[in-house]
């Protein structure tokens, strides 16, 4: 359980001309927590992150990061945070090593210390062999890992990752996830924005769902999923036994609308613990079960329940950028 607040946001707003992009956002993130900020494109995630990282002034509300006000104490905030922004903001003409060393200088590390940290970080993100190549020759996954390494050069207390895996292939995505978990194990607070429901589910201790600039749901992934309903068992059966199976399952839990003529969906309060009851009851009635699956509500179900639509997930790519 987190012991202190790393990020505190109260009524944060940002207007662009007549458009209110962020509307009264309230967030509390404990120290050592991974907070997943989930929402579709244009929901207000990046605008919120830009305000929290002092890159954009709020037009209303207030926020503190690492105990410092993002407006009045911007420089102290910047000294406490690491930032890896959307679409890895890297100079394709620099080498990986040059970039990390520049980042070390920007954060006031002495030359020798900066060089040592650069070597360590390049090793850590598995880029030591590519360290002296220009960033423009890196794949998308390598660029994100370099961006992450650059954000860590001064060992920040709070790390902001803005869609760190968008567009990456599954292998590169998993590598980033492992690194984020390792960082969090070391005590770093992570504020992670993502469009990927699975990413938030896998990584985040707490999730905030933002839509049209407003937080529409917040809590642990488990509590959010519990809000939208109990898990259900999906049974694949012979067509002739469907009616009898439905009769039996109805005694165990409420039936959900079937997806096809060979499927029965029954909601179960206790999840996996209810599986033996269902199997025994069907077995006693001599009903042959083709397959059985316990299905838990996903964050997608939560998102749909809160917003009425699905998040459109972007396609993946890891091709090298132009040099």
């Amino acid at each position: 359980m987190a012991s202190a607040t790393a990020i505190s946001v109260q009524g944060l707003e940002r207007a662009f001309a007549e458009v209110l992009a962020v509307r009264g956002v309230e967030i509390e993130v404990g120290e050592g927590e991974i907070y997943g900020f989930l929402g579709p494109n244009g929901a207000g995630k990046t605008t919120t992150v830009r305000m929290l990282t002092t890159l954009l002034l709020p037009t209303g509300g207030r926020a503190t990061v690492a105990g410092h006000d993002v407006v009045a104490e911007a420089r102290q905030v910047r000294a406490s945070i690491g930032v890896a922004l959307q679409e890895a903001a890297l100079d394709p003409l620099m080498t990986g090593r040059e970039l990390i060393r520049l980042q070390a200088t920007l954060h006031g590390l002495p030359g020798a210390e900066g060089r040592r940290r650069a070597d360590d970080l390049l090793e850590r993100v598995d880029l030591a062999d590519a360290a002296d190549r220009r960033v423009g020759t890196y794949s998308g996954g390598m660029q994100r890992r370099l961006d992450l390494a650059a954000a860590l050069v001064h060992e920040p207390r709070v790390l902001f990752l803005d869609e760190p895996t968008t567009g990456l292939d599954p292998v590169s995505r998993k590598t980033i996830w492992e690194e984020v978990r390792a960082l969090n194990d070391d005590g770093t607070t992570v504020f992670l924005t993502t469009q990927y429901l699975e990413e938030a589910d896998q990584l985040a201790d707490n999730v905030g769902i933002i839509d049209s600039g407003r937080i529409v749901a917040e809590g642990t992934p488990a509590s959010l999923k519990a809000e939208v309903g109990a898990p259900h068992i999906r049974l694949q059966l012979e067509e002739g036994s469907i009616a009898e199976a439905e009769e039996i399952c109805r005694r165990i839990g409420p039936l959900l609308p079937p997806v096809d003529a060979k499927t029965v969906l029954v909601e179960v309060e206790q999840g996996a613990a209810d599986i033996p009851r269902v199997v025994r009851a069907l077995d006693e009635a001599d009903i042959e079960v083709g397959s059985l699956e316990l299905v838990h509500p996903s964050l997608d179900d939560v998102f749909v329940a809160k917003t009425g639509y699905h998040i459109k997930v972007p396609t993946t790519s890891s091709a090298p950028a132009n040099a």
């Binding site: 000294a79 930032v83 100079d91 650059a150």
Partner: peptide, 16 residues
């Protein structure tokens, strides 16, 4: 070009 590709954000986010 730095602004367009977001590189200046890296600089603006540093405590300098």
């Amino acid at each position: 070009v730095d602004i367009e590709m977001g590189f200046t954000d890296r600089l603006f986010a540093a405590p300098i």
